[in-house]
Amino acid sequence: MKSVLPSICLLFSITLAAQDSAHIQRPVFLYGLATYDLPKSYGFSIGTSFPFGSKIKNLTSSEKDEFVSAEFGEYRHPYGYTSIIFNAGIGIRYVRSPQHFTELCFHQGVMRTVYDGKVYEIDQYGNIKELRFFGRTYLTTGFSYSLNWALHNRNQNLWFVQLKPSAWAQYPYNSFLKLHLSLQAGVSYRLKNINVRSRSKHNYSS
């Protein structure tokens, strides 16, 4: 009687999944991007991403690397302000071939604006005074999705072209939040590999 149920199961397709844990070498990336923030701001940003985990599916050969990132950027809204942004992020890199990978990243940061032109304020005695480098500090939160293509068609790719649209919010802005849509384009560079914990998932089917 005990063997009846397994015997019936053998009549159907069965998939068993096993997961291994090991260490694997995954790359650290540096990147430099030109930024266009709608409707008319432009600037640049540089950043780096460090892997801290990896998931490998043996059957599909796909890899998912988890990473943390740090980014410093500057952009300018002509006749408005110049802003400096520092972001920290956490994301997932999807690697499907040596020539191409994509990244989805959630980031949180701080932004400081400095207004164009002179800024005036009236003091308590009614005198007008000029404020130097006046601006405001905001928090930022957003998502980005980057597409990366290898510049050389070899396995040891070092340079990638990166295209990264992102949506983010600046707050508190006039007691609410201001939405931004940005498009970044540039290059990313595979700096070196470091050891990260890898979780491999193997699927066995009958």
Binding site: Y79, G80, T82, Y115, D116, G117, K118, V119, Y120, E121, L131, F134
Partner: peptide, 18 residues
């Protein structure tokens, strides 16, 4: 930054009042 450069027949400048 666009600073005030004096009077002009074709000015295009900005300042802020806080």
């Amino acid at each position: 930054k666009k600073e005030f450069t004096g009077l002009s027949s074709n000015a295009n400048e900005i300042f802020w009042v806080t």
